[in-house]
Amino acid sequence: MAASPDLLFGLRNSFYLGAYQAAISSSDIPNLTANDALERDVIVQRSYIGIGSYKLVINEIDSSAPTALQAVKLLALYLSGSKEAAISSIQEWLSDAALGNNPVLRLIAGIIYMHEQDYNEALKHTNAGGTMELYALNVQIFIKMHRSDYAEKQLKMMQQIDEDHTLTQLANAWLDLAVGGSKIQEAYLIFQDFSEKYQMTGMVLNGKAVCCIHMGHFDEAESLLLEALNKDAKDAETLANLVVCSLHLGKPSTRFLNQLKLLHPDHMLVKRLATAEDNFDRAVQSIA
């Protein structure tokens, strides 16, 4: 018997590549099963989170919603600033035998603990895998832990399940960037392939730009990043990458840096810069 068509393929793909508005706009899909309808709702609410509409998600998902949607609401709460409340709730749910193994709940727990830079805690909930998103998140976590060997094992599992899956390709590109060297060109080709097949998104543009920065092609990186900035003027990674690119090109980076500080004060680049400035001030005082 022929397999039934995957009605959510396009929606998932848009979400994975960061085309959040496209995912929201194309979510009215008829004839979905109850499970597919829930997955669709989860993707739509996570897409709203992707465009920063946290309050909308918090208001739309009530206490009677399924566990998967409740988990998404916790992510919106966390990102809107209610970090302690969100973490407390997620810990409580994860310890509940009936809820704790829900793959969306485990995924959201992994995302929240990754934001907290508590990678060991994140892996407690994601390491068992089970979905392509969980495997892809594991790849990201291991890269952040500078364990590209473990990330590669996760990627191999993804390749065995579906080598052509968008998340497998994305995870491959992330790992190539982490490993560096000759792998950078391979990562660039993956992002180039995405840009030819699908809608050009800020995520894909940033991916290509980071590859260009690694290869020393700063002019090309700058044009890609300015294109990404046109799509979303508030995106943290675009602004951070533009700061780096401008410095390499000998151009002023103050405007991008000030925007990053204002919009994303917790960004790693902002924190590192603040630490460097403090160290410099202390060094100056010590010899004054």
Rank of each mutant, 00 (worst) to 15 (best):
M1W: 09
A2V: 13
A2T: 15
A3N: 06
F9M: 12
F15Y: 14
A23R: 04
D28E: 13
P30G: 12
D36A: 13
L38R: 10
E39L: 06
V44D: 01
R46E: 12
S47F: 00
Y48E: 00
G50C: 03
V57Y: 00
V72C: 01
L75Q: 08
Y78F: 08
A85S: 09
A85W: 01
A86P: 04
Q91L: 05
N101L: 14
P103F: 08
V104F: 02
L105N: 11
L105E: 08
G110Y: 08
I111D: 01
I111P: 01
H115L: 03
N120V: 12
A122Y: 12
L123K: 12
T131S: 15
L134H: 11
A136I: 11
D149I: 03
D164I: 08
T166M: 09
T168Q: 10
N172P: 03
V179L: 09
K183P: 03
D193N: 14
D193W: 11
N206V: 10
V210C: 02
V210S: 10
H214R: 15
H217L: 13
A233Q: 10
E237C: 02
T238M: 02
L239C: 01
L239V: 03
V243C: 00
L249S: 14
L249H: 13
K251F: 02
R255Q: 11
M268W: 04
R272K: 10
A274N: 07
Q285D: 04
